[in-house]
Design a protein around this nucleic acid. Structure first.
Length: 84
DNA sequence: GTTGAGCGTT
């Protein structure tokens, strides 16, 4: 069962690739990783989403990555809400 | 700097 995580408090330097790299560390399989950018300005909105193949991996990633430092920002990791 | 989009009319 796949699970999706919300990752907040990202650095504006963090992009899709570095987000995926950070969350696929320690052998986890990231299905997809996306940093949300403002559609009009193209700037990062400072948060993103990472989807995992297995909810157990998502949980371990959440525990492992929440509070960790990435590009100078302290990550906030939670289960994602549905798109609005 | 904290929860995603666009198409097209549910």
């Amino acid at each position: 069962m796949a699970k999706k995580l919300y990752v907040g408090n990202l650095s504006y330097n963090t992009d899709d690739a570095s987000l995926e790299a950070a969350f696929s560390a320690d052998g986890r399989s990231v299905l997809s990783a996306r940093v949300i950018t403002d559609r009009d300005t193209g700037r990062s909105r400072g948060f993103g989403f990472v989807e995992f193949d297995d909810d157990g991996e998502a949980q371990s990633a959440m525990e492992a990555m929440d509070g960790q430092d990435l590009d100078g920002r302290t990550l906030r990791v939670n289960e994602a809400n549905d798109r609005r």
